[in-house]
Every structure is written in C-alpha cells, then in structure tokens.
C-alpha cells in the first residue's frame, strides 16, 4: 500500500517534470529543428521533422552572412563589459558593504535608483553624448553603455552578499597586516566568488541578448553584434525564418555552454566552506 502511494507520487512528479521540460525546452527544440530546414520547407509545414538536414546553413550564416564578424563583435563587447562590471561592481559593493562613511546609503541609492529608468528614456540622451565624445558607432562606446546599465544590479547583488560576510574576517586580515585593497583581493573576492560568478552569468546572458542599445548605437555592419545579425534576416516583406533560426542557434549555443560550465562552479562555491 505504502509502496503504491510512493509510486503514484513519483509518477505524478515525473509527469509534472516532463510537462515542464516540454514547455521549457519545446521552443528551443523547435528552433533547433528549423535551423537545419530551409525557409520554403518551414512555410510548407512549420512543425515537420527535417527531411534533409541542411547543416550547410550554419556555414552559410557564418561565412556568407557575416556571422563570424558578429560573433566576435559580440564576444569582445560582452567579455570586456563583464570583466569591467565585475571589477568595478565588486570594488563598489565592497566599499558600500564594508565602510561606514557619511553618505554611504546616499551613494548606494543614487547608483541603484538609475534602475528605474527604462532604456527608451535614456537612449536619445545617450546617443547624443556618445556622438559628442566620438564614441558613437564604436565598440568602446557600446561597452561603456553596457557597463553603466548593468552596474546598478551588479552592485546591488554583490553588496547584499558582501554585507553578510562577518566583519571579524576583515578585522583578522587587518591584524595580519593587510591593507584595504589587499583585503579586497585576498578576502572579499575569493570568499565572495559565488556571488561574483552569479552576476557574471546574469550580465553575460543579458548583454549577449541586448538589442536596443546595440541597434541604436552601432551602424556599421562590421561592428554589429549577434542580435543585430539576426535582425538582418527580417525583411520588410519576406522573413527568412530558416536563417533566423540558424542565427539564433549560433547565438544561443555559447550561452548554454557558459551556463553549463559555470553553474557547476556556482553550486560548488555555494556549498563549500561556510564561514564559521
């Protein structure tokens, strides 16, 4: 009797999980299948299994549609932005979490309050500022914008984590003779690594997919990032659905790999070494 009840609950759980997996992974599988079919095949029957697997579409996208350039542009912009965000964000968060000074909460509030502005409000002003400083249509300009839009959330998440680290740890390092900056590198950064990796993953995913700022601030085809490359296949009259799916797969694969690699590290970091 007891075993059957357990079996029922297990079956229900399995069923629920299967449904959720289908719901979450379904669109992804569909896109993946479309990425190896041509647009005319897709128009004939959107949900059909590929008759012939057109792997050459990936080569087409990579070489003929300039995806190689988009991919490297995205990589450079995102990697540099995420590194800058992690360093600046962690320093700012450490400072706000660790030091009592006049205006601490004010600085925190000012940084965090910028999160309330939707990008549509700031983008025209940003456009003008970047043109003024000769940063329009450049990767450096886009990186600066990316760092500034993601900094509030990064500081918010890291500050919350750093503030929970016990003060004794920092006092002990001071007694051991370390300066403030050394304490940051040798204590805050390694101990706070799970939080730093979390913000790195969030920032990478968000910036890798970022479209609005990129479409406004980059005009040269050679400087475009991946989301703009995908847009190229959306014409006024005809949408090249097949190539859009291929482009999306190229864009999404690195993110999946990064997430798979980092999330394991993340869990390791979270479970190892509680403070006391």
């Amino acid at each position: 009797m007891l075993i059957t009840r357990q079996m029922i609950s297990q079956t229900l759980l399995l069923l629920g999980l299967s449904l959720y997996t289908a719901y979450a992974a379904g669109p992804f599988v569909w896109t993946a299948l479309m990425s190896v079919r041509t647009t005319s095949e897709i128009s004939a029957d959107p949900y059909a299994w590929p008759e012939t697997w057109h792997w050459s579409k990936y080569l087409d996208a990579w070489y003929s549609s300039n995806y190689a350039a988009y991919f490297w542009n995205s990589t450079i912009v995102v990697v540099v932005s995420v590194i800058l965000l992690s360093v600046i964000g962690a320093l700012a968060a450490h400072c706000l979490a660790r030091y009592r000074f006049r205006g601490n909460r004010l600085v925190y509030f000012v940084i965090f309050s910028t999160i309330i502005f939707p990008p549509q409000i700031t983008i025209i002003a940003l456009f003008q500022v970047l043109v003024e400083y000769g940063l329009f249509n450049s990767h450096i300009g886009l990186i600066l914008v990316y760092v500034s839009i993601q900094l509030p959330l990064t500081v918010f998440l890291l500050e919350g984590f750093f503030a929970r680290l016990p003060q004794d740890l920092f006092d002990a390092a001071r007694m051991d003779g370390y300066s403030d900056l050394e304490i940051f590198w040798r204590i805050t950064v390694p101990v706070g690594m799970p939080a730093i990796i979390t913000t790195m993953i969030l920032n990478t995913i968000h910036l890798w997919n970022e479209f609005l700022y990129a479409v406004v601030l980059i005009t040269d085809d050679d400087k475009r990032t991946l989301p703009l490359g995908i847009q190229k296949f959306m014409g006024d009259r005809l949408e090249d659905t097949g190539m859009i799916a291929t482009g999306m797969m190229i864009a999404v694969i690195p993110i999946i790999i990064i997430y798979a690699v980092f999330s394991e590290k993340l869990i390791q970091g979270m479970t190892a070494g509680a403070v006391k």
């Binding site: 016990p166 004794d168 740890l169 006092d171 002990a172 390092a173 007694m175 204590i187 390694p190 101990v191 690594m193 070494g273 509680a274 403070v275 006391k276």
Partner: peptide
Amino acid sequence: AMVFQSYALYPH
C-alpha cells in the same frame, strides 16, 4: 595578534 570569538578563519 588577536583571537576572535568567531575565530574569523579565512574559509577559502
């Protein structure tokens, strides 16, 4: 040198 109540050992 100081010994803290929480020991304050560097966890990493």
